[in-house]
Simulated scan of single mutants.
Amino acid sequence: MMYNGILKTFPGEIRLFIAAFVVVLSIGFFTGLLFVKQTDSTAPAGVEENYLGNEADEGAEVMKFKKGEREMLTIVHTHILSMSFIFFLLGGLVWLAKLPKKWKLFLTIEPFFSAVLTFGGIYLMWMGVSWMRYVVIASGVLMTLTFTISAGLVLFQCAVPKK
């Protein structure tokens, strides 16, 4: 079955539908990143503080408390489930775009690893494995890059039909 580049051959109204979906999906994804920035979780110390609290720091501007196990399980559960759906749907669209197979494979498989490493890493960090904060940041950055590239690729190929 020939599917490489089929996205460009879809009728205009279907490409518009797909583009609208990817735009709204991107708004949701990047709003989540704004939340991460708002909680000062973009640096290793901020990631750790966000989940483990800062009660010992008397000079802290905002007091944060260690999250409970129920809250941590809810965070990990909801994020891994929602990220798997996001990347499954976006990945399906990437496979319909015109791009070499090796790039498609990377863009569609890597985010699943990053989702597990990011949110599993947050849980392990909370459990006391403090070096996981670096894994959380690295995998989160990689996950964001693959999302951005994938969404951009799909939007571009929806905007430029096959001639």
Score class of each variant (00 low, 15 high):
residue 139 S to G: 03
residue 14 I to W: 15
residue 5 G to E: 10
residue 132 M to K: 06
residue 94 V to P: 02
residue 162 K to H: 15
residue 8 K to V: 03
residue 137 I to G: 04
residue 121 G to P: 04
residue 96 L to M: 14
residue 123 Y to L: 13
residue 129 V to R: 14
residue 48 E to V: 09
residue 88 F to E: 00
residue 152 G to W: 03
residue 12 G to A: 03
residue 43 A to T: 14
residue 82 S to F: 10
residue 150 S to K: 04
residue 13 E to R: 14
residue 67 K to F: 04
residue 93 L to G: 05
residue 96 L to T: 13
residue 48 E to P: 01
residue 45 A to Y: 11
residue 51 Y to Q: 10
residue 143 M to F: 05
residue 88 F to G: 11
residue 92 G to R: 06
residue 105 L to T: 15
residue 77 H to Y: 12
residue 28 G to W: 04
residue 50 N to T: 15
residue 47 V to P: 03
residue 16 L to M: 13
residue 147 F to H: 07
residue 110 E to M: 11
residue 118 T to I: 10
residue 116 V to F: 03
residue 116 V to T: 07
residue 66 K to G: 00
residue 75 I to G: 00
residue 13 E to S: 10
residue 26 S to Y: 07
residue 53 G to I: 02
residue 138 A to K: 07
residue 79 H to W: 07
residue 92 G to V: 04
residue 33 L to Q: 04
residue 81 L to N: 12
residue 13 E to T: 12
residue 50 N to H: 13
residue 61 E to P: 06
residue 153 L to S: 05
residue 54 N to S: 06
residue 37 K to Y: 11
residue 154 V to P: 01
residue 53 G to L: 07
residue 107 L to T: 02
residue 114 S to W: 09
residue 134 Y to V: 03
residue 146 T to R: 05
residue 97 A to E: 03
residue 7 L to I: 08
residue 110 E to Y: 14
residue 71 E to F: 08
residue 102 K to H: 12
residue 136 V to T: 12
residue 61 E to K: 11
residue 158 C to F: 08
residue 47 V to G: 04
residue 83 M to W: 01
residue 143 M to L: 11
residue 13 E to D: 15
residue 130 S to P: 06
residue 118 T to Y: 01
residue 24 V to W: 09
residue 146 T to S: 06
residue 60 A to P: 06
residue 101 K to F: 14
residue 91 G to H: 07
residue 43 A to G: 08
residue 38 Q to I: 10
residue 81 L to Q: 10
residue 6 I to M: 15
residue 125 M to K: 03
residue 14 I to N: 13
residue 147 F to A: 00
residue 89 L to N: 12
residue 148 T to N: 01
residue 145 L to E: 05
residue 45 A to T: 09
residue 33 L to A: 09
residue 141 V to L: 12
residue 87 F to V: 09
residue 55 E to V: 11
residue 50 N to C: 09
residue 9 T to S: 14
residue 107 L to W: 08
residue 160 V to K: 15
residue 122 I to L: 14
residue 30 F to K: 02
residue 76 V to E: 10
residue 18 I to D: 02
residue 132 M to N: 08
residue 133 R to K: 15
residue 110 E to S: 12
residue 30 F to Y: 12
residue 18 I to H: 00
residue 71 E to D: 13
residue 21 F to A: 03
residue 60 A to M: 10
residue 114 S to Y: 05
residue 110 E to P: 00
residue 56 A to I: 07
residue 155 L to T: 02
residue 97 A to I: 08
residue 6 I to P: 01
residue 3 Y to G: 11
residue 70 R to I: 08
residue 99 L to H: 02
residue 135 V to F: 03
residue 10 F to L: 15
residue 96 L to K: 12
residue 154 V to T: 03
residue 64 K to D: 12
residue 99 L to T: 11
residue 134 Y to Q: 02
residue 77 H to C: 04
residue 142 L to S: 12
residue 153 L to C: 06
residue 145 L to K: 01
residue 14 I to K: 14
residue 65 F to R: 13
residue 10 F to P: 00
residue 18 I to G: 09
residue 24 V to L: 09
residue 12 G to S: 13
residue 95 W to I: 15
residue 23 V to C: 07
